[in-house]
């Protein structure tokens, strides 16, 4: 069936089987391979993308269910003026190693900071608790999210002055 999805602000129309998973629409049909998958069972969160502004596990969403809706992926984080602060902070805090969980972590972290600009470590850990990282022991991911929060608060204060 034909579906139309807005992905990173761009309208994309495709004819798909109803059973096509959203993660495969993004990766195979739209060639947005920044969204990964790691487990099939909605445990690992490597496939996290935003659906209507909220991160979900795209291995457990049908592409047809996204018809008429908005998707944001890691490829949609960078703006005309450069990387999103959360991307910068992941680099600055060594928040990634193999880079496989990173896109999903970034999408959840961005969502958290939009909701909670000054999260505690506990809130950060809770927010990413549905996403597995095998490399970092989470330490520097937590640091990176805290770092981004601080940088954005600083920027907001400078902007307010």
């Amino acid at each position: 069936m034909e579906i139309t999805v807005t992905v990173n602000g761009r309208t994309r129309t495709r004819d798909v089987e109803p059973r096509l998973l959203l993660v495969h629409l993004l990766r195979d049909e739209l060639r947005l391979t920044g969204t990964h998958w790691g487990c099939d069972t909605s445990n690992c969160g490597a496939c996290a993308v935003w659906l209507d502004g909220v991160p979900v596990k795209s291995c457990t969403v049908l592409a047809v269910m996204a018809d008429g809706h908005e998707i944001r992926t890691v490829e949609g984080l960078e703006g005309p003026h450069g990387l999103d602060q959360i991307q910068i902070s992941f680099v600055q805090c060594h928040g990634l190693q193999c880079g496989f969980c990173t896109p999903g972590m970034l999408m959840t972290a961005r969502w958290l900071l939009d909701r909670v600009p000054d999260p505690t470590d506990e809130q950060i850990r809770e927010a990413i608790s549905g996403q597995t990282c095998r490399c970092t022991g989470y330490e520097n991911i937590v640091r990176a999210i805290r770092h981004a929060a601080a940088a954005e608060r600083d920027a907001a204060e400078r902007g307010a002055r």
């Binding site: 969160g45 996290a48 991160p55 979900v56 596990k57 457990t60 959840t108 608790s129 549905g130």
Partner: peptide, 9 residues
């Protein structure tokens, strides 16, 4: 219950 992303959906 599960995790925040699962709870979102």
């Amino acid at each position: 219950i599960a995790d925040p992303l699962v709870r979102n959906r």
